[in-house]
Amino acid sequence: MSAFAALLARDLRLATRAGGGALLALAFFAAVAALVPFGIGSEPRLLARVGGGVLWIAAVLAVLLALDRLFQADYEDGSLDLLALSPLPLEAIAAAKMAAHWLTTGLPLSILSPVLALLFNLPPRGYLALVLSLLIGTPAVSAIGAVAAALTLSIRRGGLILPLLVLPLLAPVVIFGAGAVLAAIDGLANGAIWLLAAFSVASVVLAPFVTAAALRLNTSE
């Protein structure tokens, strides 16, 4: 097994076993989505309109929730230094960790989203766009989040500052993601999903390099 696959398998195992928190992110996603109708009222037409956007926000928050442990545990017990010394380039290590993070948060979230959309009375035309946009967009959230997680590595309560760092960078994902769902519901030409795909590809490709640069400054000293 290649070093990349081994690292990916290790992180997947860590995330899915006890204390890994992959299921907690899913529960958090459902809890945020369930809380919204209490806040804005349960009028079905309103919920159908805002459902896509609410699920998108809940998904981004849930993905962010799991981010502060992405490198933190390895950093604290010294495994990150060992990983940095391994022949695998730091960029590949960052990419493997991003992939593991997405596979345990973004992917299950996207699969669960139609069930929650049911609670929001999402019109049938919106379902495909919702799942597709989440599948396309959440890798970007994992990628940009990984950059922020690497930057805040040496901070003790890094989880508090992380949302502030990623909020401006993630705005396009939420705008285009939720926009894609609305466009599908209204039966409009769906340009948003292409822009989302472009943004996602760009961030997934560039993020490992930025993340590796940020990791390097935290491991070299």
Partner: peptide, 18 residues
């Protein structure tokens, strides 16, 4: 976010790079 990151990291050089 930039200001917060500067203030949160103790080591000056590390904060500057991040």
């Amino acid at each position: 976010g930039y200001i917060a990151l500067w203030n949160a990291i103790e080591s000056e050089t590390r904060a500057a790079r991040a």
